[in-house]
Computed example of a mutant assay.
Amino acid sequence: MALADPVLDSPKEAAADPDAFVRAAMHWHFSPGTGSPFWLARRSELGFDPLTDIRGHADLARFPNLASELREAPVGELIPRGYGERPDVVGVYESGGTTGAPKRIALLQDWLDQLLAWSSGQLDAHGVPQDVNWLVVAPSGPHMVGDVIKRQTAYRGGLAFTVDLDPRWVKQLISGGRAAEADAYAEHIVDQAAYALRSQEIGVLMCTPPVLERISRRDELAELVNRKVRAINWVGTQMDADTRHLYRTEVFPDAVLYSGYGSTLILGNASERPGLTDDDPCVYDPFSPYMSFGVVDPESGEPVEYGERGQVVMHHVSRSLLLPANLERDTGLRVEPLPGQVGDSVADIAPVATFEDQNVIEGVY
């Protein structure tokens, strides 16, 4: 592996001077010896020179949104040459693929190590226990979330019990008017979760709000969760403030209720801000400066005011991947960032009605 600027590898150094971090990343990703074939081939088409014109985080907005090219781009061409001939690739993962062909990306071990350490610290901040087993009801297969959470569980000293969830199939059933089949599939998911809850010691339950709602309908399962589970990590589709309050105060009062908001194309997730009250919307703070958010007017591309709703833009900048200016299929409220964080925080996430000329269906994830 080629040597890189140390600022790319140290979260403390990167956070101390995020603009220097961005400049180091540009040097890595656009130098012939270390950059990826994907970006080196596009350098001359950008209309600016990333080595001289991108001077800090604010300049990432100058990049075009090339995320759609990841539907067809050979994944190997996204890996920087600086990793050598045998890069330590954890896996190749796909976006949801529910608004067209999926986009593909590679997850490298050095980035995963950083992500797990940061995510574990966020879980600690919310009081999620270590050294307990997790029941993970989430997409696996080509999706990143299931694999990463299994590794997160091991990192924190537990065993992961898994139930595979295929969001593409559920959304296909819903879009085809086959609601009864979608309902039966969702109940099949809950049945499998029930086997683990009955027979194993489960300290953390990870699932989506639709799955959690179905679990809460079954008195036996709700009682098992209350007796065994010490934290519930919900992800995927969103949960409104009233429902979150009901779960915290009446349905699962003894469990920590915690959420994350992520995307395969930022190679991770943002963390719910600790200390929020039941009256606050879920505010998500990213792993800055590696992941960062903007909230923009979808027509003009300009940032909306704090407290206003716009479409979420995500940037990922690390040694393993450069993917700036990705316009997501979500809207959110623009929130002032934490001290030292670059970009925005986001709250009250909701899907757009259509994305890339396709209707957006939430389903079970």
Rank of each mutant, 00 (worst) to 15 (best):
V90G: 08
V90Y: 13
V90D: 13
V90Q: 14
G91T: 05
G91F: 09
G91C: 09
G91W: 06
G91A: 10
V92A: 06
V92D: 10
V92G: 00
V92N: 07
V92E: 15
Y93D: 01
Y93A: 02
E94I: 00
E94M: 04
S95T: 15
S95A: 06
S95V: 03
S95W: 04
S95D: 03
S95G: 08
S95E: 03
G96Y: 01
G96T: 02
G96C: 02
G96L: 01
G97L: 01
G97R: 01
G97Q: 03
G97V: 02
T98P: 14
T98D: 11
T98W: 07
T99E: 07
T99H: 06
T99Y: 05
G100P: 13
G100K: 09
G100N: 09
G100I: 02
A101G: 04
A101D: 12
A101S: 13
P102F: 05
P102N: 05
P102L: 05
P102C: 06
K103T: 04
K103C: 09
K103A: 06
K103R: 15
K103H: 10
K103L: 05
R104M: 00
R104Y: 09
R104V: 00
R104C: 00
R104I: 00
R104P: 00
R104S: 09
R104K: 13
R104W: 11
I105F: 06
I105R: 00
I105N: 03
A106E: 01
A106M: 09
A106K: 07
A106T: 03
L107W: 02
L107Y: 03
L108R: 04
L108W: 05
L108D: 04
L108H: 01
L108C: 05
L108G: 02
Q109F: 06
Q109V: 10
Q109Y: 04
Q109M: 12
Q109L: 12
Q109C: 10
D110K: 11
D110H: 15
D110L: 03
D110V: 01
W111T: 02
W111H: 12
W111G: 04
L112D: 03
L112W: 11
L112A: 11
L112Y: 12
L112S: 07
L112M: 14
D113S: 11
Q114S: 14
Q114G: 15
Q114F: 09
L115E: 15
L115D: 13
L115M: 11
L115T: 00
L115C: 01
L115P: 01
L115R: 10
L115G: 00
L116G: 09
L116Y: 08
L116K: 05
L116M: 10
L116V: 08
A117P: 00
A117G: 06
A117Q: 14
A117S: 14
A117I: 10
W118Q: 07
W118C: 07
W118G: 05
W118S: 06
S119H: 12
S119T: 02
S120T: 08
S120L: 14
S120A: 15
S120I: 08
S120R: 14
G121C: 12
G121P: 14
G121R: 12
G121M: 11
G121E: 13
G121T: 08
Q122R: 15
Q122T: 03
Q122E: 15
Q122H: 09
Q122G: 12
Q122I: 02
L123T: 05
L123W: 11
L123H: 12
L123Y: 11
D124T: 10
D124N: 07
D124F: 09
D124H: 10
